[in-house]
Structures are given as structure tokens and as C-alpha cells.
Design a protein around this nucleic acid. Structure first.
Length: 1042
RNA sequence: GGGCCCGUAGCUUAGAUCGGUUGGAGCAACCGGCUGAUAACCGGUAGGUCGAGAGUUCAAAUCUCUCCGGGCCCA
């Protein structure tokens, strides 16, 4: 055992411990030593190393590590394979920026092979920062053999799963309406469009649609005239009222509510009135006949999304150009008329405006409608409209061809499997996630991009054959291709360049050009990390389903969903048993952190200043894991000061004295039952703590576990146990009590460090390394979790101590109240309590003596000398019994003398009140008895115990008080002279003769307490340090000499 | 626009499942004490329209509804 540093230096300690772990391969050993034990299966949600880690990532990694270390110490075998998510649009965008490529055409021109090569490099651009962060916060993760979604093996597994979907007829080609940039020729993801919204002023027009075979028009409203060319239906709200009116000689149908707004101040005659439902299937004449759809079109449909906020309550429907439109279109089996080319211009068949960019054609279309008398009004309308963040072109909503996985077909299985999962917090299961699952939409799988897992679908180029296949392995692909090389990379463009022959007609096949959604990649991790089913089938089977995953709340519909979706259609099984959803990390003001807002806190700064343990402890203890947590340095600093330093200083205190006394933890171990009550008490508290922590960890209430530990360390251990143990450690010789204290402290430090090693792995390791004895595991992280022992718990002792502490507390408050300082000894306290309580507290009365600085403590049962009894009405009783009268009864009782009521209840057994001329009979059941002290006594009381202080100060006690004053001042001088605890001094004290006489008796005591070789009373004290002091009215000069 | 979560003292929070006497703690503040016990300790003081409003009830931080604010997800 060595004396630790006085000041805790987190950075120094953590770097040293880190090195120790690496040098001794502790992480590896922690896994291997559990081999053969019951596994705890974990799956790492792969981050993308394409950006720097964020405080939110720190939280997820800390929480994962906490749970995994906890489960490891509880004996489980845990593989901790790291993973990297490597595909996707963000990577492409980074590379586009770097290479200065403006759009997809530029990428094609640059060369897909070279482009993807750059993507591959870019993916690990910040890997170093991730690895460093992961190590610094001590997230033990096997980063040497991670799964990586860009690897051929991983892609092959993903292909296999897609082939399963294909075989189950779940893969199909359909349409998806997406925001599309006609200039860049690309669809934009939602996060891309969210940065490009602008408020613009567009023409909004009121268009008349002639009702078929009937006089009159439907009046519809639109801000995108160019979509009218592709109109196929009009939508009304099913339950809102609509009216047919005559206005300016025209017959129009529109929403009643909107008519009131739009035609305000105008005269119109109401001809008829109906609900939207009644209009369903009414046909109208198309505005344009450029399209001749195969399916039935141009009639009224019903849709809930029709709003009464603006427009006419009648919405024109063009399924190719709006998501809502598309959905309604599917419901009514409407044709998808798409009279806009991919470059944003009208095609040949739109003869009037062919070649014009659709937005530019708006004025021409408006003019044309006006000329035909189909326009009833034009207004300017300002609204938010998305623009391309890259080129600033207005985006068009556009129905793009896309491949889908028919999740709607397995909806019931999804719900069933979701119900097997233990969600933390539970509300997500049926709430956000459950709602999503119940209303599941087909998964739009394909992306018309470059850097991703290629869609393994090939279609025969022979239009007559049109045979399509889904490849499920490299082997299959090799067999079908004529030119399959030795070395290959399954990305684009390799797969597109392979020459594949149709198994049916032997013509060449062409791959569908898209790549897949990268959420599918990460959602495949549970099997693809093992390259299942091509290898490791047993590893896969052993590790599925997964016991535990944990990510932040934003993954609910991301990774948590994609895992469940894939696992459901592949195996019809829930992929994970437990999911811990973490809250988001916000800034000091509860705002989302972002670099642009400049409220971003760099975790490395905190790691440098306060250290990983403080950071971890803060994140774990601040809040329930699923609640959002504010993150700022000051908060971590508080944690460091409040908890970690208290813990460290307690350790420092213990080791300092233990070394001084050459304490040997392996020698003369005293059984717990033979130790002092204080020792037995702290052990009992500690074992209670073990139980509490384990209970909270089971439900992931890590903040409650951490707070229980804090309370134990700060309150029970440091502020009470160690403080109360100080005296016995100061004794020179090794008394049994002192030895018993050392053993107890030692055991607590070892046990406590083990208990919180999963929370704060560095500082606990530091202590463990210093305290461990031969034969103990090499690292604290190779230890078993401390086990709760029922024998160690002594409920009665704990209760007694609670009472003692409460007594001491109120005794001190009492002293403060009656203004008699703690250093003045008082002659006596009397403790009034039952025999039973006396039995449990009597062994601990010395604590009262010392803490309250009194000479004697006596027990008595009768408090009547000191006490006065009163009653307090039981409102919980009176309320139900007297209902509305209770208020008046309460009121009446307020004016009564409560002591007299008590007396009355004792003698007459009832109290009669007159309330509103009615007699109310109350019995002792309606009251609680409350005790108060008589004011003339200095009294403190807790529950069943009362304590009375005798406040007489005798001359002897006065002298003793002075002795304490002197000791305190000599001690502070020792400190000032920077003397070591064990240094001996010569003390000279200059006092007035009369005081000096009174002090003679205390000379020995002063000598002992101040580690003085001798204490002399002299006229003028000398020494290396001399000081004049005022003690109340008394002037004293003291000199000390080493 | 829809769904979900959250809102208690300057800050961090307990209490909400199951309504019941005066809503507990810690940090910070202030006053006092103590100190070979540390960024410590002890006593006290002040600080709360429990986000707002309404409802149910003898009784609401707690149950219900509406609204406000913050956040997330989806449009």
C-alpha cells in the first residue's frame, strides 16, 4: 500500500490506468475469463466514423459500457464486437464537397469507381477520433475485429437476406413521391430538404372543374399550376359540409366554411348543401387531355388531409407530385399521370408547353386557363417551399420508381414480435414505436445513388423475356457471370459491369442501378456481422436473439425498427429482448447541441479537465437514462467535487493512517461480529447498498443506483463513519478497535470499488491496485460483483444508528438554538425512550457523548416532566367520514386548545364540537397524539425518542472548553508550520496565572492531542512559530517548536 | 399539421403507479459554528402561483380536459 497523491489528478490517473489495461490486456482477459459462462448478448449499433463524435455518442457509449461491465462482473460472457456504418448519402456529400462535384452527372463524369474509392477512404476519416474517445471514456469494445458494412462479406449477407425477401415475394417495384431536384437530377433525403426551406410567394389559383353531365363547377385551389396537367382527381373532406352556390351567374361547389371566408361581402345564393361523402365518385371533365390513362380518372375522392385552413376545401390530386396525392391514388386505384420529365420540363405530348421548365410555365398555364374561362381567381400566396441546398433550384415532388419491401404484409408479425421486447422506457413499446408498427408502410429500399450496398436484382435485357433474378450470394453471381475475377469489390461499378446471362433466355441481364437504404445495412447487423449464413452459423445461433441493445431515442424508427423489420421477415422473431432507449444530450439551456448554434460542448475538454470518471458519473447519475440530459462542464465539475473527491479523500484518509500503522489486510482479520458497533453498522449499510444498486440496475434506473452510492459514500461513509472513526485512529498503539476499524475500512473500499467499477472504471482501478493483496485478481475489472450477504445486515443496529444520528442532529440544532457552542462541554443529556429503543441505542450512546460534547448520557422512560401532549386532527379520517362538514370541523378545531383536547380524550374518551348547530362527537380515532416540549427545557426529539440537555456550565467544564480551544489553535499552528501528522513538537503557552491554574489539569490532555513532547506554561512562549490568540475575552500566546 | 415525452426553489432533483396533515433533499446564497476533515464538516435563514387555466372531489403536484413552453419523431 502506498500513500496516494493528496490531490486527485484525473488526467494523470486515467492515463496511467489506461496504460495498465493495455499492457496487461485486461479487457481481453475480462472476456476470456468468462468463457463458458452464460452469455449476455450485446449488439453494437454501428456509428459512422464520417463525422466527429458528439456528446450524445459519449452518453450512449458510457451507458452501454456501464451495463456491459456490470453484466461481466456478474459473471456473464459478453462479446463486444464493434461495428462501423459506412454507407449512405452523408458520405457521398462529404466526398462531393471535397472533390467539388456539383451533381450526379459530375460524379458519373468523374467516374463511379474513383468516386466510391474516395467514399471508402472518407468513411474512416474520423475513426481515430472515435477510437480515442471510446478509449478515453473506457468503453471496452473490441475495435480490432469490427463488423464493417462495406465489406464484401457483409454485403453478401445482406444480399442473402434480400433474396429471402425476394423469395417470399416481399420485394417489389413501385413509386415513391420524393422531393427531387431537377437540376441535380437527384432525390433529396428529408434531412437535406429540412435545411433548404424558404418562404416564397407563389401564384395560387382558383380553378374550375366542369361537373360532368351537369351544370356547374368544382372550385379547387392550387399553388402549383404545372401539376394540373397531370390531374386525375379532386379530393374533398368526407365529413365537412359543402355547398352549391350561384355567384356572378356561375354555379360553383366548394366548402361551406371556405365560401364564408372567400366570398365574404359578396352576394351568392345557396342552391344545395351536402357533406363531402355525398360528392364521392362525382365525375368531372378533365382540364387537359394530354394523358389518356388506362385506369378510371377524373372523379371526386375522399381524403382526411383536406384542410379548411386555406383553399376551397377541394384539393386537386396529381398522384405523381405529392405524397398525399399518391396515397389517395393508391386507395382509389387512380392512374399515375406523370407529364413532367426528369429534367423538370414538359415532355413532347404536352404540346403547348413542351420543353419549358414547369415552374417557368406557370404563368402560361394560368393565362391559358383564363382564356378558356376556367379560372375564378388568382392570389399571391406565401408559403414554405423546399429548395435544393446545393444548387438552390426549387424542388419538385416527384413520384420516382423505387424498390420496396412489403412490410405491410408482415404487419401482424411485427406487432407480435414487438410485444416480446422489453422496452425501456416502457411507453415506447405501445407509444411511438407501437403506433409506427401498427401503421407500418412499405419500406422504400432503393436509393438512386452510388455509395451503398448494390441492389442485387438483375433483369433480362430481352424485353420479351424480362426475367428478373435476385442474387443471394457471391457464388451465385460467379456462376451466372462469364468474367468474374479473383479479386472483386461488390460495390458499384463492379457489379454493374459484370456480364450476366439470363438463365432463361441466355441474353445479357442488367442490374437495377440503385443501391439500398443504409438503414437496411445496419439493421442486418445481427446476422451480417457473422457473415451468416455463409460462415459462423453456430456463432449466429448462439448470439440471436440479442439480449441487449441501447441507442438514443432518435433510433426508434431508425435502427430499432430496421432490426425488427429484417428479423421479422427473415425469421419471424424479435431480434432483441431488451432495448434501452437513451434520452438526448442537450446544452445548458436545454437546447439541442449543434455546431452552428455554437452551444456545442467538446467532450475532450471535459475529459482533460474533470476526467472520464467524472463525466461518466455525471451522465449516469444526472437523470434517468431515457430522459434528456443537460451537458456542460460546470455540471461535471460539481460531480467531481461532490462525489469523486469525497470518495478519493476518504481513501486518502484511510491509506494515510493505515500506512502509518503498517496495517496489513491479510493479518489478524477480525470477524464482523467481534468488531465495534460502528463497524458493524457501516457494513450493514454497505450490504443494503449492494441490494439497492442491484435492484435499480435490473430496471436500468442507473441514476437511482448512482444516487444511492453517492448517499452512502458522502453521508454514511465519509460524513459519519469516517468522522466517527477518527479518534480511534489517532491512538498511538494498535488497539483491537482500531484494527477492527482498519479491516472494516479496507473491506468497504474493496467492496465499494468493485460495486462502482462499472460506473467509474479508472478511479476504482487506481484504488484497487493500491489496496489489493496477493491472490486477488489482477484488475478490479476481473473481479466478481460484490455479493449481498444477509448476515451482514443488522436492521436493529441501523435503526438504532438512525435514531442516534437524528438525536445528534437535533441535539446540535438545540445547542445552536440555545446558543451554547459545541466546544463547551455540558454535564448531561437525558434520553427518554422505551426500553426497546434504549436497548438498540444504548450501545451507541458514546457517539452522542462525543458529538454533543456532554459528560453523561442517561436513559429514562418517562417524559412527563419535560413533555406536554397535544392532539392533531386526522384529516384523512375526518374527510371521508364528514365529507363537506370536514372543512368546518377543521375550522372549529383550530380555535381549540389542543393539549386540553388531549386531556379530554384521555378522561372522557370523546370531544364534542358544535358545528353549524350540530353536535359532532370525535373520538381518539380521529386524532393523532403529538408531543411537544415544555418551553423551559432544552429539548430535541425525533419520533419515539426525546432528548433533554442539561445546560449548566460549571467551572470544570469551562476549563475543559478552554483546553479544547487551546488544542484547536495549536493544531492550526501545526498545520500552518506544515508539520507532518506524526511530527512531535514542544509547546509553550502563555496564560494568566488564574487560568493557568485551571489548565494544569488539562496539560496531559493537550500534550497528547497535539502530539507534543511537552507542554509548558510560560510567561513569554518561544518557538519556530509564535502566535497571539483571543479566545472570547482571554488573550493567549502560543509558541510551538519541532 | 399529427403523435410521443418532459415542465416542481437560481440550478440538479424526490414525491405522480395508488389524491390525504405543513411538497422533501442536495448545490449555490446568506448568518453562525467547527476544523490535523477534503473542493470537507455542523446548525440555522431565505428561496415554491408544483408551467397556466378549468374541471372532478370534503380534499389535487398527483386524476381529467384545454392551453403555453421545451424536445424528439413523422408529415
Amino acid at each position: 500500500m502506498q500513500t496516494p497523491q493528496q490531490k486527485y489528478n484525473p488526467k494523470e490517473v486515467e492515463e496511467r490506468i489506461q496504460k495498465f489495461w493495455v499492457d496487461h490486456a485486461i479487457f481481453k482477459k475480462s472476456i476470456e475469463q468468462r468463457k463458458g459462462n452464460k452469455p449476455f448478448i450485446f449488439l453494437e449499433g454501428p456509428p459512422t466514423a464520417n463525422g466527429l463524435p458528439h456528446p450524445g455518442h459519449v452518453l450512449t457509449r458510457v451507458m452501454k459500457d456501464l451495463i456491459l461491465r456490470y453484466q461481466t462482473m456478474n459473471g456473464h460472457y459478453i462479446l463486444r464486437k464493434a461495428g462501423w456504418d459506412t454507407h449512405g448519402l452523408p458520405v457521398e456529400i462529404e466526398v462531393e464537397k471535397k472533390l467539388g462535384l456539383a451533381d450526379k452527372q459530375a460524379i458519373e463524369k468523374y467516374g463511379v469507381a474513383k468516386f466510391n474509392e474516395e467514399c471508402k477512404k472518407s468513411v474512416f476519416r474520423y475513426e481515430h477520433a472515435w477510437v480515442e474517445m471510446t478509449q478515453r471514456i473506457a468503453f471496452w469494445l473490441d475495435m480490432d475485429t469490427p463488423y464493417i458494412t462495406l465489406k464484401n462479406e457483409y454485403i453478401e449477407s445482406v444480399w442473402w437476406s434480400l433474396q429471402q425477401a425476394w423469395k417470399k415475394k416481399l420485394l417489389y417495384r413501385g413509386h415513391k413521391v420524393v422531393p427531387y431536384c431537377p437540376r441535380c437530377g437527384t432525390a433529396l433525403s428529408t434531412h437535406e430538404i429540412s435545411q433548404g426551406y424558404k418562404v416564397v410567394e407563389d401564384p395560387s389559383i382558383f380553378v374550375k372543374f366542369k361537373i360532368k353531365n351537369e351544370e356547374g363547377y368544382f372550385l379547387a385551389w392550387t399553388t402549383t399550376p404545372w401539376t394540373l396537367i397531370s390531374n386525375v382527381a379532386l379530393a374533398v373532406h368526407p365529413t365537412e359540409p359543402y355547398i352549391k352556390i350561384r355567384s356572378n351567374g356561375e354555379i360553383l361547389i366548394l366548402s361551406e366554411q371556405r365560401a364564408a371566408v372567400l366570398l365574404k361581402g359578396q352576394e351568392y345564393e345557396i342552391l344545395d348543401r351536402f357533406t363531402g361523402k355525398e360528392l364521392e365518385h362525382t365525375e368531372y371533365e378533365p382540364l387537359f387531355t394530354y394523358a389518356s390513362p388506362e385506369k378510371k380518372a377524373w372523379f371526386v375522392v375522399l381524403a382526411d388531409f383536406v384542410t379548411m385552413e386555406d383553399g376551397t376545401g377541394i384539393v386537386h390530386i396529381a398522384p405523381a407530385f405529392g405524397e398525399d396525392d399518391y396515397t389517395v391514388g393508391r386507395a382509389y386505384d387512380l392512374p399515375v399521370v406523370q407529364l413532367v420529365k426528369l429534367d423538370g420540363t414538359f415532355p413532347e405530348e404536352v404540346t403547348l408547353w413542351r420543353g419549358q421548365f414547369v415552374k417557368d410555365a406557370d404563368p402560361n398555364i394560368i393565362q391559358y386557363l383564363e382564356e378558356r374561362g376556367l379560372l375564378s381567381g388568382i392570389k399571391k400566396h406565401s408559403h414554405e417551399y423546399p429548395f435544393c441546398w446545393r444548387c438552390d433550384s426549387p424542388l419538385l415532388y416527384y413520384a420516382m420508381e423505387s424498390w420496396f419491401i412489403a412490410m405491410s404484409k408482415v404487419q401482424e408479425s411485427l406487432v407480435k414480435n414487438n410485444n416480446q421486447i422489453a422496452w425501456y422506457p416502457p411507453h415506447l413499446q405501445q407509444g411511438r414505436f407501437g403506433d409506427f408498427i401498427r401503421d407500418v408502410k412499405d419500406w422504400a429500399l432503393s436509393r438512386d445513388r452510388y455509395w451503398g450496398t448494390p441492389l442485387p436484382i438483375w433483369t433480362c435485357s430481352n424485353k420479351k423475356c424480362n426475367h428478373a433474378i435476385c442474387i443471394g450470394s457471391v457464388q451465385e453471381l460467379r456462376e451466372l457471370s462469364t468474367d468474374f475475377p479473383e479479386k472483386y469489390d461488390l460495390h458499384k461499378p463492379f457489379v454493374d459491369e459484370l456480364i450476366i446471362h439470363c438463365p432463361k433466355c441466355n441474353q445479357q441481364m442488367i442490374r437495377e442501378k440503385e443501391v439500398i437504404d443504409c438503414w437496411y445495412d445496419s439493421g442486418s447487423a445481427f446476422f451480417a456481422q457473422w457473415h451468416y449464413p455463409f460462415e459462423n452459423t453456430d456463432l449466429f445461433k448462439e448470439n440471436y436473439p440479442i439480449d441487449f441493445i441501447s441507442e438514443a431515442l432518435d433510433q426508434t424508427r431508425g435502427w430499432f425498427y430496421s432490426l425488427l423489420a429484417i428479423s421479422t421477415f427473415l425469421f419471424d422473431k424479435n431480434p432483441y429482448k431488451t432495448v434501452l432507449t437513451l434520452g438526448l444530450v442537450l446544452d445548458k439551456d436545454n437546447q439541442k447541441m449543434s455546431k452552428s448554434k455554437k452551444n456545442y460542448v467538446d467532450p475532450t475538454i471535459i475529459l482533460d479537465h474533470e476526467g472520464a470518471d467524472a463525466l461518466r458519473w455525471y451522465l449516469i447519475s444526472a437523470n434517468a437514462p431515457w430522459m434528456s440530459t443537460r451537458f456542460y462542464e460546470e455540471a461535471v465539475k460539481d460531480t467531481l467535487g461532490k462525489f469523486l473527491l469525497t470518495y478519493w479523500n476518504s481513501y486518502n484518509f484511510f491509506t494515510t493512517y493505515a500506512i502509518l500503522d503498517s496495517f496489513d489486510a491479510t493479518q489478524k482479520i477480525i470477524p464482523l461480529s467481534k468488531r465495534g458497533l460502528l463497524d458493524q453498522w457501516i457494513m450493514s449499510r454497505f450490504h443494503h447498498l449492494l441490494m439497492t444498486v442491484q435492484d435499480h440496475m435490473k430496471t436500468f434506473e442507473t441514476h437511482k443506483a448512482a444516487r444511492a452510492v453517492e448517499n452512502f459514500v458522502i453521508d454514511d461513509f465519509s460524513n459519519w463513519y469516517l468522522r466517527r472513526s477518527r479518534k480511534r485512529l489517532w491512538v498511538e498503539e494498535m488497539t483491537p478497535d482500531k484494527l477492527s476499524g482498519y479491516h472494516t475500512m479496507y473491506e468497504i473500499f474493496i467492496g465499494l470499488s468493485q460495486l462502482i467499477a462499472p460506473f467509474i472504471p479508472f478511479i476504482t482501478e487506481e484504488m484497487y491496485q493500491n489496496l489489493k493483496t496477493p491472490g486477488m485478481p489482477e484488475s478490479i475489472h476481473l473481479c466478481d460483483y460484490p455479493a449481498f450477504e444477509k448476515n451482514a445486515v443488522n436492521e436493529e443496529l441501523e435503526k438504532g444508528m438512525d435514531q442516534i444520528r437524528a438525536l445528534v442532529e437535533s441535539g446540535r440544532a438545540l445547542r445552536s438554538k440555545i446558543n451554547i457552542k459545541g466546544r463547551h462541554p455540558l454535564p448531561a443529556v437525558t434520553v427518554i425512550c422505551s426500553k426497546e429503543i434504549e436497548k438498540s441505542t444504548k450501545p451507541l450512546v458514546d457517539l452522542i457523548k462525543e458529538e454533543l460534547n456532554v459528560k453523561t448520557v442517561t436513559f429514562a422512560q418517562d417524559s412527563s416532566r419535560f413533555m406536554i401532549k397535544t392532539v392533531k386532527p386526522k384529516y384523512s379520517h375526518l374527510g371521508p367520514k364528514y365529507k363537506e362538514k370536514a372543512k368546518h370541523i377543521t375550522h372549529a378545531l383550530e380555535t381549540q386548545d389542543l393539549h386540553q383536547l388531549y386531556e379530554q380524550l384521555q378522561t372522557k374518551k370523546e370531544v364534542v364540537l358544535v358545528v353549524n348547530d350540530e353536535q359532532i362527537h370525535l373520538t381518539s380515532d380521529d386524532f393523532d397524539v403529538v408531543e411537544h416540549e415544555k418551553e423551559q427545557y432544552a429539548k430535541a426529539s425525533i419520533q419515539d425518542i426525546t432528548l433533554f440537555l442539561d445546560t449548566t456550565i460549571t467551572p470544570e467544564l469551562e476549563a475543559e472548553g478552554l483546553a479544547r480551544e487551546l488544542i484547536r489553535r495549536i493544531q492550526s499552528m501545526r498545520k500552518e508550520a506544515s508539520l507532518a501528522v506524526e511530527d512531535r513538537i514542544v509547546t509553550e503557552i502563555g496564560l494568566e496565572p488564574s487560568t493557568q491554574k485551571a489548565m494544569e489539569k488539562w496539560k496531559e490532555h493537550i500534550k497528547e492531542e497535539t502530539r507534543s513532547k511537552s507542554v509548558l506554561f510560560v510567561q513569554t512562549p518561544s518557538g519556530m512559530l509564535q502566535k497571539k490568540w483571543m479566545i472570547d475575552d482571554l488573550s493567549v500566546e502560543i509558541g510551538i517548536q519541532k
